[in-house]
Amino acid sequence: MELLAVAVLGVFALGYFLLGGADIGVGMLLPVLGRDARQRRLVVTAIAPFFLGNEVWLVATAGILVGAFPVLEGELLTGLFPAVVLLLVGWIVRDMGLWSRSRSDGRAWCAGCDAAITGGSWGVALSWGWMFAGLLAGRIHEVVTGPGALLTAVAVATLFAVHGLAFARLRLSGPPHRRASALFGRCGERPGLALTSSALVLLCLAVGFRLPLQENAADPGTLGLLLPAVLVLMPFLLGAQALMWWTFRARVERPLYLSTHDSWPWCPAEPGSRWRRWRCCKPGRSSRRRTCSRAPSRSSTPVTCRGSPEPSCCARLRRGAATPSCTEPRRISKPICGARSSPGPRRNGRAGRSAR
C-alpha cells in the first residue's frame, strides 16, 4: 500500500509539473513573446483554456500528501514555510492578472495585469526552485540559503521557461511563434517539448527519491480508505484533461479567452462617439439595418471597419464566401466591453447574425 501511495503521489506531481509548468513558463515569457498589446493577448489565449485544469493537479497532489503522508506534510509545510508563502502569493497574483485582464482595455490596466502574470509566474517558478534546492540537499526541516540555493532556484526557473517556450511553439502562430522558435533553437517542436518534459521528469524523480515517503506513510487503514477512492476518480480526471487538450489542440490564431473586447467583432467608431457593432449578412443579401456586398473576386485582403484599430473586426462569413464589405453600422445604445458575438449566419439562406 505504501508503494501504491507513492506512485499515486508521483503521478499527480508529474502531471502538475509537466502540464502546469508549460503555462507557467509561457507566463514568465509574456513580454518577450508578445511585443504589443494584441500579441500579448494572443499569448494569454494560448494558456487560458489550460491553466485552471493544470492547477487541479497541484490541488490533488497536496490532498494526497495530506491524506497519505500526514507527518511528512507537516514537516514540509513547517520547514519550507517561506517558500510555500512565496508560491501561494505568486499563484494568486498570476491568476488575478489572468482573470482581471479582460475587465478593462486601458493601457495602464492591461500593463498592470501583464506585469502580474509575468511576476506571478516568475514567483511560482522561483519558489519551486527554492524548495527543490533544499529537498535535493536532504533538508526538509528548513529552507536553504546561500549561492547554491540561488543558483538552483534560477536553474529550475529557467527550466520552466524553456518548457514554456516548447509549449508556445506548439500553440502560437505569427510573430510570437517565430520568437519562441528563435529562442528555443533548431530542435523540432514535438521533440523539443519531449526534451523539456524529460528534464522535468528527471528533476521530479531526483527530488522524490530524496524524500522519506515510505517511512512517513499513513497507517494501512487510512491508505485502504483513501487509495481506492483516488483510483476510482483518477480515470475521470485523466479523461477530462485529455478531452480539454484535444479540444484546444489547434494553434491560436487570434485572441479569444480572457481578452479585451476588441478581440470580438465590436468596432469603436470615431473618438468620442458611442460604440458600434458592424454586422455582415450573407453575400448578395441585404436587411433593414445592414447592407453587405459581395466582392467581385476572392481576395486575401482583410476586412476592415472604419475607425477600428483591429483589421478583422467585421464578422467573417462562413467558409467559401468571398470577402464581404460592411457599409452600414448598427448603433448600440450604450458602450459594451467584452461582449460576446452572436451566432453565425444560418444555412437556410437568411441574413444571419455576425460570426464570432
Rank of each mutant, 00 (worst) to 15 (best):
G239E: 07
R274H: 08
R288G: 13
A157T: 06
L80D: 09
R101K: 07
N216L: 13
R249Y: 01
L231T: 07
L238W: 08
A83Y: 11
G164E: 04
W122R: 00
I64K: 08
P175Y: 09
S173Q: 01
R179L: 13
F17T: 03
T45H: 14
A60C: 05
L200I: 06
E73A: 14
L88Y: 10
G120M: 01
G188C: 03
T304P: 02
L211W: 04
P212S: 05
V143I: 08
R139A: 11
V26S: 00
G138Q: 02
W130Q: 10
T158F: 09
G338L: 07
A217I: 06
K282D: 14
S198I: 04
A269E: 13
R306M: 11
G221T: 15
I140G: 09
G344W: 00
R294V: 14
A315Q: 07
A149L: 03
P49F: 05
P176Y: 10
R41V: 00
R103M: 05
V156Y: 04
R179Q: 14
L33D: 07
E73K: 10
A217H: 04
A116E: 03
V230N: 04
L238I: 13
P345S: 00
K282Q: 12
L165A: 03
L76S: 03
S100H: 04
P335S: 14
D95N: 14
D23K: 04
V230I: 15
W99F: 14
Q214P: 01
A218C: 09
G90K: 00
L170Y: 07
F167H: 15
L238A: 15
P82T: 08
R279F: 03
L211F: 06
A229M: 13
G20D: 04
P335F: 08
V303A: 13
L237V: 15
S273I: 00
H141E: 11
I117F: 01
F69E: 03
L195P: 00
D95E: 14
S297C: 12
T247D: 11
V32S: 08
R186H: 05
L18A: 07
V156M: 05
E73M: 08
V201Q: 01
S342T: 02
L159N: 02
T301K: 15
T291L: 13
S299C: 13
P212A: 09
F167D: 06
S102K: 07
A161C: 10
A157Q: 07
L258D: 11
L200H: 12
P345W: 08
P70S: 11
R249M: 00
L9F: 12
R330Q: 09
T301I: 14
C313T: 11
W266C: 07
R285A: 15
R330N: 02
G164Y: 04
R346H: 13
L18I: 13
W278I: 12
A355T: 04
A68E: 07
R35M: 07
A229R: 12
P268F: 02
V154W: 02
G25Y: 05
